[in-house]
Nucleic acid binder design. Structure first.
Lengths: 328, 328
DNA sequence: CTGAAAGCGCTAACAG
DNA sequence: CTGTTAGCGCTTTCAG
């Protein structure tokens, strides 16, 4: 059916070893021999069978990206951005990328041991059991957008505290003193960091923080709008809201509109993630930009180095940057 | 290092054939033999090596999803949604999914012939050369969100004309007679279908269409807003805009706000795609819902049937549905 | 129900 | 530079 290395060997009159070399290390084969091989190969439409090669070499050049997140998956712009970075880097390094949701992590772990996958990038709310499972199977893993206590593995995260600080500073520079924090229901790690960042930043700015000014809501615009309505209806309302995601910020802007508060005139708003929606809102949303692509690329780099047995830093923090638009 | 079937065979005192059967067809092995094998296997932490199995079986259970799109990739909510569907179905069928951008389609095609990938799902603006390449290599392919003349392959598309009709009807029912069409720079197939759908729908509704009411713009909100400013500034402006994507619709709403036109009071707007942004806008956007998930699942189903050698329909059209919100 | 043995297609010493 | 040969780990007839 499909031509094999034997067919090429026979037709070109050289050994299979030479055919093999012609494809994997051409410089080791004399010019004219090489040519003969190529001719035979193309006559037979031969292409090396990668499975057989993997088998002989005992490796696959295949890695996996597992998105560990309840609700959205690859549909989440944030994780899709990381995926984009991973994809780019994987392509450049000639690695095959398997993408999957965390539903089937047991299966993934099995795959890993069976050597189909050499390393795994875990994104998001990873369960400790999952990490243990992979480690038990000797699979190299790197975490992205999360850190885990008690596990020895490379993590790639965004500088959450810096991001929050940038947003707070921007608001403070615009003259705001009553800055409220609105948090969506994100992962514990993210929420924790961003909350801590807020407290830090406000202290550094010598601005007050009251419990009333810290609000939790769901990660939907509707829920955020509802919470914001309460927050902004009082007589002594904050003049600025630092939202912990763009979606939450969009909800705040909806509430502002309903209450007849102009943005940024009567209420300033900052978002977080610098996602595609920022430029769709009116006014456009000032937001903290996370270099998700770079997070993904970094994860692949770390994974490769780890697979080569090199030492890798346990923690890589990617800086954020504030993108200023019209909402402050 | 890692335990192999031989180790298990030796420790359990049965042949490798029996070990193999124990894992792939347990019912063919006597109860107590089976138990002994399992014991030995777990003592050795043995897991079958999938590569070796693939090699022996001459198949991989691995498929690929290639997003063929210039700008965005997996970052595009639409293609991400399809990916989600593909992922789900692939997981259910125990297929591994390789996701990639089209940059490297030559490499993918090579992979395919080398049997690493059994079939490919192509999404978006596929180049004919690409299809030819895959077909030349005898790789089964299915197209999603596109149709190609002159190629014999299964396609999965959304019912574009139905979608446009639903939007137009909704607008007409709300009493609008001057309905403008705003199109972003999408793929030729999509633009063609939606334009044709608009003409059809307007004719069926006995509503007039003038050239002035059909506008092209880029696929960004900024560009759409700019075009919409022109469209809506005239004295004799349309009272409704049927936008061919949610992003374009968002641009139209921005323009409306700048011009002081209230939505939907003075201007009705419909979007297309029913993407996440619909509920973030104020008012929320009425939009045509595309069942992207189902498109992805269908593509996987077709691929599998094709791989089994079964006959598959050349064209599968997924119905759309209008999601009514506040913008009409 | 179980075992022996022949591959699956390619690579990597090791000789020549 | 090229050929010989022994695997890589598993599956699958074909006998028993």
């Amino acid at each position: 059916m499909k031509a094999t290395i034997y067919d090429v060997s026979r037709l070109s009159g050289v050994s299979t070893a030479t055919v093999s070399r012609t494809f994997s290390a051409p410089e080791q084969v004399r010019e004219d021999t090489r040519r003969r091989v190529y001719e035979a190969a193309s006559a037979l439409k031969y292409t090396p069978n990668a499975i057989a090669r993997d088998m002989a070499l005992q490796r696959t050049n295949r890695i996996a990206y597992l998105i560990c997140k309840r609700q959205a998956t690859i549909l989440d712009e944030f994780y899709a951005g990381i995926c984009e970075g991973i994809m780019r880097r994987a392509n450049a390094l000639n690695l095959q990328l398997i993408v999957s949701t965390a539903d089937d992590w047991r299966q993934m772990a099995a795959n890993a041991q069976s050597k189909q996958v050499e390393g795994v990038i875990l994104g998001g709310d990873v369960a400790p059991a999952m990490v243990s499972e992979f480690q038990a199977r000797n699979t190299f893993i790197v975490l992205v957008n999360n850190r885990m206590e008690g596990f020895d593995l490379p993590c790639v995260v965004s500088d959450e505290r810096q991001g929050i600080r940038q947003a707070a500073q921007c608001l403070a520079e615009a003259g705001h003193r009553r800055i409220a924090l609105m948090m969506g229901g994100y992962s514990p790690f993210i929420v924790g960091e961003r909350y801590a960042g807020f407290i830090e930043a406000m202290a550094a700015l010598r601005l007050p923080v009251t419990d009333a000014d810290v609000t939790m809501c769901d990660r939907t615009a509707a829920s955020a709008a509802e919470s914001a309505m309460k927050l902004l209806s009082g007589p002594d309302r904050p003049t600025a809201v630092l939202a912990v995601s763009d979606v939450v910020a969009a909800g705040v802007m909806k509430a502002a509109r309903r209450l007849g508060l102009s943005v940024p005139g009567e209420l300033a708003v900052t978002g977080y993630d610098d996602s595609a929606i920022c430029t769709l809102l009116e006014p456009e949303l000032t937001s903290v930009h996370i270099d998700v692509r770079r997070m993904g690329e970094t994860a692949v780099n770390l994974l490769c180095r780890g697979l080569e047995g090199e030492d890798t830093p346990r923690l890589t923090v990617i800086p954020t940057q504030l993108t200023r638009r019209g909402s402050v």
